[in-house]
Design a protein around this nucleic acid. Sequence first.
DNA 1: CCGAATCCTTTGATCGATCAAATAGCCGAT
DNA 2: ATCGGCTATTTGATCGATCAAAGGATTCGG
Lengths: 324, 324
Amino acid sequence: MRRLPTVSDVAEVAGVSRQTVSNVLNTPAIVRPETRERVQEAIASLGYRPHASARRLRTRRSSTIGVRLDPGTDGMSGSLLDRFLHALVERADRSGLRVLLYTAADEDAEIAVFERLLDGADVDALVLTSTHYGDRRIPWLVEHDVRFVTFGRPWGEHDTTDRSHRWVDVDGRAGLHAGTTSLLEQGARRIAFLGWPVGSGTGDDRRNGWRQAMREAGITDLAGLDLQVEEDPQDLGRGGRAVAGLEPAPDAVVCASDSLALGARLALGPDVPVIGYDDTPLARALGFASIAQPLDEVAAAVLDLIGSDEGVHHRLLTPRLVQR
Amino acid sequence: MRRLPTVSDVAEVAGVSRQTVSNVLNTPAIVRPETRERVQEAIASLGYRPHASARRLRTRRSSTIGVRLDPGTDGMSGSLLDRFLHALVERADRSGLRVLLYTAADEDAEIAVFERLLDGADVDALVLTSTHYGDRRIPWLVEHDVRFVTFGRPWGEHDTTDRSHRWVDVDGRAGLHAGTTSLLEQGARRIAFLGWPVGSGTGDDRRNGWRQAMREAGITDLAGLDLQVEEDPQDLGRGGRAVAGLEPAPDAVVCASDSLALGARLALGPDVPVIGYDDTPLARALGFASIAQPLDEVAAAVLDLIGSDEGVHHRLLTPRLVQR
DNA sequence: CCGAATCCTTTGATCGATCAAATAGCCGAT
DNA sequence: ATCGGCTATTTGATCGATCAAAGGATTCGG
């Protein structure tokens, strides 16, 4: 491979000094327009590109953000993370940022990874997904003054307005509220909610959306309609059995996830409206409605928060109901 | 954040020179055991970690491999890429390699990305997925002397034994052969193949596995059993309709993908055995059998080939039939 | 016509590591 | 005792960029 041109080569061709070339690249405003143009021509003619590692060594920043690839299927469901990652990488690229992946088996391992990544100046910001109650990673990062944004609200102890913790999240409550309302408008009254046991932030948030919509419609007796099952990848029928056991049968079901919705759909058949969450290929394939997270907007917001020093420190986006 | 210790700090504490510290890290064999131990203690006590960017600048290698995140759902299906990535990142980590993501809308854009990544010394090897006939990326990479491994055989013009192109792939033919054979053993005779139109490397390869197994069972008349449909994410029913149109009905169906299998399953009901490909959550959810790619082995093989300079230049792995 | 104020550009040092070549220490053979 | 032949360690230079501070034009008021 040929030797790559350096700033010095460009400087020589343009008849200026290294630093002026550097200025054209980093602070073009302070360079006289004619000079700037000459330098830019030289850059183009040589096909010069800054050497990322050299720049990082000097500036002590990597222009790289780290994203964890979740180990299991828990947390963000596979396809969702995939779509989020794609949106993130694409947008990051436009801002000259790179995306580096990492994995870790548990929180302690993840913190060890943080140390490695940060010490080596590999990344200068992190994006965390699947946050939960008592997440030990957050205080660690805050304490070590690491720049990070979470996709997911700080559930629990942390104040959601804490300025040291920047986050982006999707308003699951609004999503389920919209879905439930849509079913009510279609005439359904006995609408069941199929979700996870109380205690997960996202799950409870979604349940509340259903609750609120039902209450607004004057339906206050939710006894027996609030179904809670532990999800088990080995046994996707649980949700279905819970729904099938309802007496009398529900008019419709809103769910905390597409895989729960799948169970409901298979148990009740295509005539009972079912709404899932995440709009995964599963929902598309089986033709049930689902609530889609605006992942592209999430990615944009995440990068925005990573980059900005001031202003808003969190953003709550509204999902979209995909009818089918 | 505190100033990080450097080689010089370690050297001072251990009472040796910078270079000796460097040697302990990179070529421990040439350092006298006592000295090595003293240096290692100093490293541990200071909590020293090499600065990745400085090392990269000097060595001109990044210890980072680039992986493309496919734009659409075509190519590797979402969940598959996800699982592959996870395996890759985890194994790469053990070898001290990082995984950087990139995206590109088409092949030309991707080649432009290659230039950026390589010039900036961001990555020193690439992993390509979803290769196809006449892939322009391959000759470009070979010509520019870039190290790369593809997950997927070079279909078409390239000789599969070409040493400049290293690849890892999963033997789809063997997978479908195993699946079909298993159905034959269960007594099925009229086994349909539901695949894509002739012309895609992977698709034809899978079809051949079915063909071969049928031939071996003495079934030579495959007329009408070889179904070819264009996959359309908006209309997953196509495969189902093709299968439902069979007269007489098939005993079983083997498919080139899980989403095709989904169509078949929905059209034929749970009593007709259906085998999909990729063992996605879809197969697990609906309970049909599927052929699983050994992604962890693939990841290991990819890294192996990236790292080694001699020896085997490609590897064909055998998938596993997951019965349900 | 001089000196101060601006503006733009250049020079030398530096980031933290490794490479290449030189040096020191040790052994046995002459 | 001297010298080559090893091995183990040190020294100086270097990778390609940016930072900090100094230098050179040009302009303007006095």
